[in-house]
Design a protein around this nucleic acid. Structure first.
Lengths: 233, 233
DNA sequence: GAGTGGTCTAGACCACTCG
DNA sequence: GAGTGGTCTAGACCACTCC
């Protein structure tokens, strides 16, 4: 037992976690029912439920009605990581933030981008490339495509000194999206922008955002060498 | 409104989400209090609480006592992604899985690994390199260091045909860990193992696992070119 | 100090599954 | 069919913060 006084759902969660880690509850094994644990811990079933549900959300327990709750064979399969908002990410690291527009054109996207956007017919989109700096060093390239119908000419002017992401957040509603993490060799233009050797391995985050079933924007964030994203479980 | 009949926390969550997406609740704005929403939706405050808490967990709402609940300026900053269990990942994609041991030696880790493990003094660790295959193609290199005290000679034999990860899961308790995602240029040996060009950009996952405050193992998963990890929000 | 979200309870019914 | 987790309620008190 951790402490006899407490009976919060967090203390129940901790105790359960301790039992998993200490292998008192072994992988693959059924653990006691909610009602029994409630009695053991001297709290209501709701409290036990909340605690075990939290562990299940993190992938450390497997729960099914009637079947009961089990410790999974392969735990911790889920990691929640916070996707950085670039400006805040840079400022949090103690650097000065700045942004500069590299290019802004209306053009027909290449096929891989068209696929991400779900555009079947060839059509123009707004293609914006910008560069975010930490102090004077290039930090990440923001290569974005936006549905042209969303932005009128007055908006377009805003992109010269405002990151498209910050524009989108305040102007465009969205309902869902996907995020993908991958890596990429720097081509010559990318290397030039990021001031790194051509061919360098770069970390890439791709985000596509939809409004109902229609894609409205897709962005590729290409980070300067050495970037890594971290989380703890 | 979505449907008048329902009053589950999920329906409340959906309605709240719809209001955020439609900008009826705008970024930065205060939304109604739990009690008011409970009355509006015809459910108890607990139900509203559960729904709004779920949205807050996903980073779509910002809640503070006394201050109330707000729509954040930059939403969806959290992504939960499931870290693949290699064997299952490969099988799920419809390939045959196989594993082969590349090397197994007791040696002193290089400094970067020693740092990850938190080893201050120079000491030997068990260094295991293995290769996971999807059909006959190399899929990922598993480059792992294990605290030598954890494995005795009889265990070591098991590594010839069992992935160290699967061994660890069933033999070693742990309490916490960190996961990092990054990218890396293939050196010559890595390129040879993964059957890819030297210098190719590879996706890398590093995991370090601790038991109480002591690091027990650190692993670097180096994926063959083209790998990406995805999630939706 | 006062108001908001955070949590707990006891009880109830429901929904999903397994034997 | 029966047992387990999933959820809802009404009410209560607490803890954190903002005014």
């Amino acid at each position: 037992m951790t402490d006899e006084k407490q009976k919060s759902w967090q203390s129940v969660k901790e105790e359960a976690l301790a039992r998993i880690h200490s292998r008192r509850w072994k992988p693959g094994q059924l653990i006691p029912f909610e009602a029994d644990l409630a009695e053991e811990f001297g709290c209501s079933r709701s409290t036990v439920n909340r605690a075990l549900r939290a562990l299940a959300d993190e992938g450390l327990l497997d729960r099914r009605r009637k079947a009961g709750t089990r410790v999974p064979l392969y735990p911790a399969r889920k990691a929640t990581l916070s996707v950085p908002v670039i400006r805040e990410d840079i400022i949090a690291k103690g650097y000065d933030y700045s942004y500069s527009l590299v290019s802004l054109e209306a053009e027909v996207p290449p096929t891989d981008v068209a696929v991400r956007l779900g555009w079947t017919a060839a059509r123009q989109g707004l293609h914006i490339v910008g560069l975010h700096f930490a102090n004077t060093s290039p930090y990440v390239i923001e290569d974005r495509w936006i549905d042209q119908n969303l932005a009128d000419s007055s908006d377009v002017e805003a992109f010269s000194n405002l990151s498209p992401n910050e524009w989108l957040v305040t102007h465009v509603p969205f309902t869902a999206g996907t995020i993908a993490f991958s890596s990429l060799n720097a081509d010559t233009q990318t290397a030039r922008l990021l001031d790194c050797p051509s061919g360098a391995a770069l970390f890439v985050i791709e985000r596509t955002t939809r409004n109902n079933r229609r894609s409205i924007t897709t962005v590729r964030l290409i980070f300067a060498p050495g970037y890594q994203i971290e989380t703890s479980i």
